[in-house]
Structures are given as structure tokens and as C-alpha cells.
Nucleic acid binder design. Structure first.
Length: 699
DNA sequence: AAGGAAGACTTTTTT
DNA sequence: AGTCTTCCTT
């Protein structure tokens, strides 16, 4: 037990020892809140003999949950499992798999992702004769989603609807929900909403879980929405052992319904709540912390606090004006070279940007100079077309009810079934009240042309075959069969480079499934699909490989890096132009800036470009207002020093022979500024940076 | 029904 | 600039 307490400061210790009753931990950036949480859970288990089964620990990402488990296991020195630690969504899925039949769903429900949702919205609008040009389907989906996160169902929405837009949304909301239910599918918001709905309608079920979860811990409480708030409140109503951790300064998800007031209002629900403040920062240098503080201090709507640190002052924050987005990347590459000489590795470096689209130019430069990197987020693996296709097959086979998936794959590869015949088939199923599978086996009764009937019934036969295969094969072997039997492989394998990469991706999913099988003995297709749906980008991130990390500032939440480059600090990019309409959104941008800055431990670079390619044209935006908020004594402008930085360390001209640390010897065939083209003896032609690349001249 | 071409539209951030 | 849509041709 002394182990559990000895490494904590007094506030952290207090957070660990206050096990009974409601506790609010206000934890500033880098103040060791994960430490406090893990030690608290370890203390509960070891000292208070609480079974892990009785602990509910909610984190923001699956990765955070996993890390927490590992840290607790290290503390306890044994292999305790914590079955109820995970994201709100994953915990709710666990509950719903047991209870959802109460709401008339089948227990084998599927989870619809964003693009599925949009598809259903579009179909619903078409069915209702609503013009998608007049009402943007994404805006409609957004309205429905925020209603759901406020615990407002279609019927209540109808009552509350004001104005034409909301009346239209009401109609679509009903139709959308109806279609999801027909497919036995839940969207992300439903996972939370339906769980709370069950708690509301079935008190005995609620009581069962109240009795189970003696202790409830919630991380990143500033980013919970209303439904999540209700979920916590209801579950903790009996034992009242609820401990929430958060920082209103780091609330960056209000656009998806999060409300940092949940933190500020905690004491209203629990007047006797113990409030503990963690204000000592262990992460950053004094300069970085001070700079970040000056940025956030401009916000009006915030609690008052001041983080402090015992760390050294460190270097000033480095400011750099690049000529354009290309040069932005080149500056980082040159700096990375200098940093490497000072003992930093590539995995110590993160590049953070506001929008995913910004990664492309950076990626191009890194590629050009052969710098290893990894990108978190962006075009996700699971959203690639071929993967969505394959997953649609899997979802359709697994559920037998999923119309969204069915429509995606019925004519993929082409089976001669177009929109018209699909419509006939759909009406046939609707009018006769047939399930999707039943309708498929009764295609003969439709008034489709014989050719179409054949197409449908052949598809139906294949589906039946796959269903029986799914019952006998392991997930990975089954997926392998699906890729062949569906015809997806031959469809994509057209000999083109693009086709090759698509087939490669299809096969990559087999490996993902193999790993899944190894990690989880006895779990099947349903669990595999579920795990994939609930995965976030950051969940797959590991910092082991020697490469620079690129991600959005949002994704960086909860992480830290010795060196952080914040790029694209220009008005219109960051703060984003869409935020300039409301003061609230601008404050959120500012919080995002604070979050990004406080990721840095030793070095922080603020980079902006005077010209930037945007929407196919060049635009020039003034430097971000956030740069002006950093006092000049904490910042040094590197821009004037570029020439010096970019000067090649030695003279290289065409015709020189060089040696590269990795590629061996080669001949310089061209010099273009800081870029050199080298024909390597065994690696062929490569373009390198003469500043950064580990090359030396030989004679 | 399918493939191709011109045109619109994009880019916030994500479980 | 790249991707997604829609319309047009076969």
C-alpha cells in the first residue's frame, strides 16, 4: 500500500484516499491526473478490497482505458482484469447486449458509423421527397445527433420543433430512426441514449447496475454531454461513490454536444462533494506553461486557476514564419535534424494541426526527404471504400437485417441490379412485411424481370452459403472466404496500382481479424464488428516506432511529446474561419490552442505560413491571434535565421560521391537548393535533403 | 445499367 | 487540388 501512496503529492494523495462519496478532481494539464486515477483504483482494490467487477471506469478513448489497466496492473503486481473500463460507448454496448431486447431490438444489433448514418438520412429524405439541396443532409444529421445527445427523441423533438427547418428535421428524424430499427442498428448516439432510456423505463434494471457499480470514475468529465451526464448520475444515485476528473480549460468537444458546465455544476447535484485541485504541472517547462497560460487567460468563460511547475524554465517558444505550406514542412525537417543532434529522436516529435487536410503537404515533404512518419486520423483504414464494402458483406451476413449494408453490396461487384430493380425489391419487402432475408428467398413472387430475379436469387444463395460458413469458421478464415466468394477480390484486382493496394487492404483486414482472434479466444464475428466500430484512431497509436507523429490537435488530447510543432497558425485556419461567428466557438478554439501547447514537454514551435494553397488557390492570412497572446519575452522569432539554418553543412555539387548512413554510397546527379538527387549504387535514385540527410562526401 | 465526363463542393474537430 | 455528384452517352 505504501507503494500506492508514496510517489504522490499531497493533492493526489487526497484524491486517492477520498474513496467514499462524490469527488470532483479539477486537474490541470500535465498535473498527473491519470496517475491519481490509477492509484485510486489500485488503492480501492488493494486496500478497500473492492472487486474490479464493482468498479466502473470511463475514459475518453479505448487507448486511455487500456493504458490505465496496464498501469494499475503494474501497481498491483498481478493480473486483475477490469471488465467495466472503457469509453462511454463501449460500456453502454456491454449493457445493451444484455438488455436491449427490452426495447424491441435484437441483441445482435449493429453499430452504424457516420457514413452509414448519412446514407440513411439521404435515403429517408429521398423517400420523404425532401430536396437535399435545400436541406443539407449533413446539417440534418447534425441536428438529429445533437438532439439525441440531449436525450431528445423524435417525439420530443416534434414537440420542441420551432421553424421550418426543425419541422423538416422532425419528419426525417422519425424516418431515420424507423429505418435504423428495421436494420436492427444503433448509431453512436443511440448507444448512450438507449441505455439511459432502459434505465428510465425499467427501474429494476437500473437498480441491478447500481448495485453492481459501487465505485464510478469518469475521466475527461469536461467533455461529457447531457446523456452521458444522466448515465453517470443515474448509476451513482445509490452508492454516490462517483469521482469525476476534468479541466474546463481543456473542453474541446462542445461541437458534439459536450458541456463543460457538467464540471462546474457537479456541486449542484452533490452539494457535499469533495473538491480536489491538482495544480502542479509535471510535464512542461516554465516557459511553455506560461505561454499557454497567457493564451487561455484571454477567455472570459473559465474558472480561475494558475498552474505552476518546479521544472526548469527551458528554451523560449520558437516562432517561425514559413513562405508556404511546403516550406513549413521543410523547416520542421531541418529542425528535426538539429534536434536529433541534440539527442532527440523522431518519436519525440509531434506535428499538430487544426484540420486533417493540412497533413497532406506535410506528408509530401516528409516523404520527399525520406523521414519516417505516422499519421493518426485522416482517411481512416476502416473508411476506405474497399474496407467499407467488405465490412458491409460481414455486417449483412452477421445480421441478416442490415438494409444499409445490403444496398451497398447487392450490386457490388455488378450483378446487373440497378436503382430501379432495387426499388421494386424494397417495396416488395415493405408491402409484404418481409424481413430482408425472407424477401430474398421469395424473389420469385416479385414482378421483377427474370434476369433480375436471377441476380437477386444468386446473391441470396451466396448469402446463405456465407451464413453457414460464418457458423463454422473462425473470423479470419471466414473473412478470407468472403473476399473470394463475394467477388470483391476479382472486382478490385484489375492489375492497376490502385487495385493492388485495395486488394492489399482487404487482406490486411484478415490480419486484423487474426490478431483479434489471438487476443480474444472464443469471440466471434459480432464482437469483431463491434470492436471495429468503436475503435478510434488514437487507439491504434503506439509511440514505439522511430517516426514523427502527425495528428490533429483534437487527437493529441491526453498525450505529451518532448517536442511539439503547431503548424498552420494563421487566421482562418486556426482559429478556424467557421469559429469566427460566435464568441463561444472562438473560446473553444482558444482552449484547443491551450490543449495543443500544453502537450509539449521541452520545446514548442509555433509555425505559420505567409502563403498557403487552399481550395485550389493561394491565400495569404495574417498570423493567428494566438501568437500575439504569447508575451514576447517567452518567444523567439526564428524566421530571420532560416538562411543560416538551411545552409548545407558542406558543399555538394553534381558529380560528387557521397555516403549515406542507410543507403550506402551513391553519385550526386543534381542539386536544387537544399534538395539533392542521388543515384545510389544499390537503392536507385532518391531525393534527399542536404541539410538533414545523414550523408558525407567521399573521394 | 454502366462507365465516363463535366461540374459542384469541399475542410473543422470524432466516439 | 482532389473528391464526390450528377448527368450524359453507349
Amino acid at each position: 500500500m505504501s507503494d500506492i501512496l508514496s510517489s504522490l503529492n499531497s493533492a493526489q494523495k487526497e484524491a486517492v484516499l477520498a474513496t467514499k462519496g462524490p469527488v470532483l478532481i479539477l486537474a490541470g494539464a500535465g498535473s498527473g491526473k491519470t496517475k491519481a486515477l490509477t492509484h485510486r483504483i489500485a488503492y480501492l482494490v488493494e486496500h478497500e478490497k473492492v472487486s474490479p467487477f464493482n468498479i466502473l471506469a470511463v475514459t475518453f478513448t479505448n487507448k486511455a482505458a487500456k493504458e490505465m489497466k496496464i498501469r494499475i496492473q503494474k501497481l498491483l503486481g498481478s493480473t486483475y482484469d477490469f471488465p467495466f473500463s472503457g469509453t462511454f460507448h463501449s460500456v453502454c454496448v456491454k449493457i445493451l447486449r444484455k438488455e436491449i431486447e427490452l426495447l424491441g431490438y435484437n441483441q445482435r444489433f449493429l453499430i452504424s458509423d457516420g457514413s452509414d448514418q448519412l446514407q440513411v438520412i439521404k435515403e429517408s429524405m429521398k423517400y420523404l421527397n425532401i430536396d437535399p439541396k435545400q436541406f443539407n443532409p449533413r446539417a440534418v444529421l447534425g441536428a438529429i445527433s445533437s438532439a439525441k445527445s440531449e436525450m431528445v427523441g423524435a417525439a420530443e423533438y416534434a414537440n420542441l420543433a420551432v421553424g421550418h427547418f426543425q419541422e423538416i428535421v422532425t419528419k426525417i428524424y422519425y424516418e431515420y430512426d424507423k429505418r435504423l430499427k428495421e436494420s436492427n442498428a444503433l448509431d453512436f448516439d443511440d448507444l448512450l441514449l438507449k441505455t439511459v432510456e432502459i434505465f428510465n423505463k425499467f427501474p429494476e434494471v437500473l437498480e441491478k447496475y447500481q448495485n453492481q457499480f459501487h465505485y464510478i470514475l469518469v475521466d475527461e468529465y469536461q467533455d461529457t454531454n447531457h446523456v452521458q451526464y444522466l448515465f453517470c448520475k443515474k448509476l451513482s444515485a445509490k452508492h454516490k461513490n462517483i469521482c469525476v476528473v476534468g479541466d474546463d480549460w481543456q473542453s474541446i468537444y462542445s461541437w458534439r454536444g459536450a458541456n463543460y458546465r457538467n464540471i462546474l455544476d457537479f456541486h449542484k447535484d452533490y452539494p457535499d462533494a469533495k473538491i480536489i485541485k491538482l495544480e502542479q504541472n509535471y510535464r512542461s517547462t516554465k516557459n511553455i506553461l506560461e505561454a499557454a497560460h497567457n493564451v487561455i487567460a484571454k477567455n472570459i468563460e473559465r474558472t480561475d486557476k494558475k498552474l505552476w511547475t518546479d521544472n526548469e524554465s527551458g528554451l523560449p517558444v520558437i516562432l517561425y514564419e514559413a513562405f508556404n505550406e511546403k516550406e513549413e514542412g521543410q523547416f520542421i525537417i531541418a529542425e528535426a535534424g538539429r534536434l536529433e543532434k541534440q539527442g532527440y529522436g523522431l518519436s519525440d516529435i509531434a506535428i499538430l494541426y487544426r484540420t486533417n487536410a493540412q497533413s497532406r503537404s506535410l506528408e509530401e515533404e516528409l516523404l520527399k526527404f525520406n523521414i519516417p512518419y505516422k499519421i493518426i486520423g485522416g482517411v481512416r483504414f476502416y473508411e476506405r471504400r474497399e474496407i467499407k464494402d467488405l465490412l458491409s458483406y460481414l455486417k449483412f451476413i452477421y445480421s441478416g437485417t442490415d438494409w444499409v449494408s445490403f444496398k451497398r453490396i447487392i450490386n457490388l461487384p455488378a450483378r446487373g441490379i440497378g436503382a430501379k430493380s432495387l426499388e421494386v425489391f424494397e417495396n416488395f419487402a415493405r408491402n409484404n412485411n418481409l424481413s430482408l432475408m425472407d424477401a430474398l428467398s421469395r424473389v420469385e413472387d416479385t414482378n421483377l424481370q427474370d434476369k433480375m430475379k436471377k441476380g437477386f436469387s444468386e446473391f441470396g444463395n451466396m448469402a446463405k452459403q456465407l451464413v453457414s460458413l460464418s457458423n463454422v469458421l473462425g473470423v479470419a478464415d471466414f473473412i478470407e472466404k468472403v473476399i473470394i466468394k463475394s467477388g470483391l477480390k476479382s472486382y478490385y484486382d484489375d492489375g492497376s496500382v490502385e487495385g493492388d493496394s485495395r486488394v492489399e487492404n482487404l487482406e490486411e483486414l484478415i490480419s486484423v481479424a487474426r490478431e483479434f482472434e489471438e487476443a480474444s479466444s472464443g469471440l466471434g464475428l459480432g464482437e469483431f464488428l463491434e470492436q471495429i466500430s468503436l475503435l478510434s484512431d488514437i487507439d491504434n497509436y503506439s509511440d514505439e516506432s522511430k517516426s514523427i507523429t502527425l495528428m490533429t490537435m483534437h487527437s493529441a488530447k491526453g498525450l505529451e511529446f518532448p517536442v511539439v510543432f503547431m503548424v498552420g497558425l494563421e487566421e482562418g485556419i486556426f482559429p478556424h474561419s467557421r469559429s469566427s461567428f460566435s464568441e463561444e466557438e472562438m473560446e473553444e478554439e482558444r482552449r484547443l490552442c491551450y490543449v495543443a501547447m500544453t502537450r509539449a514537454r521541452k520545446r514548442l514551435y509555433l509555425v505559420y505560413a505567409s502563403n498557403r494553397m487552399l481550395y485550389g488557390g493561394i491565400s495569404s492570412n495574417p498570423p493567428s491571434r494566438f501568437i500575439n497572446d504569447v508575451p514576447s519575452h517567452l518567444m523567439t522569432d526564428f524566421t530571420t535565421r532560416t538562411v543560416e539554418l538551411k545552409e548545407p553543412s558542406f558543399d555538394i555539387k553534381a558529380g560528387d560521391k557521397i555516403r549515406h548512413a542507410k543507403f550506402g554510397t551513391g553519385l550526386v546527379v543534381g542539386v536544387n537548393g537544399e534538395e539533392i538527387d542521388v543515384l545510389f549504387d544499390s537503392f536507385g535514385l532518391k531525393r534527399l535533403s542536404s541539410v538533414f540527410a545523414p550523408v558525407e562526401k567521399i573521394n
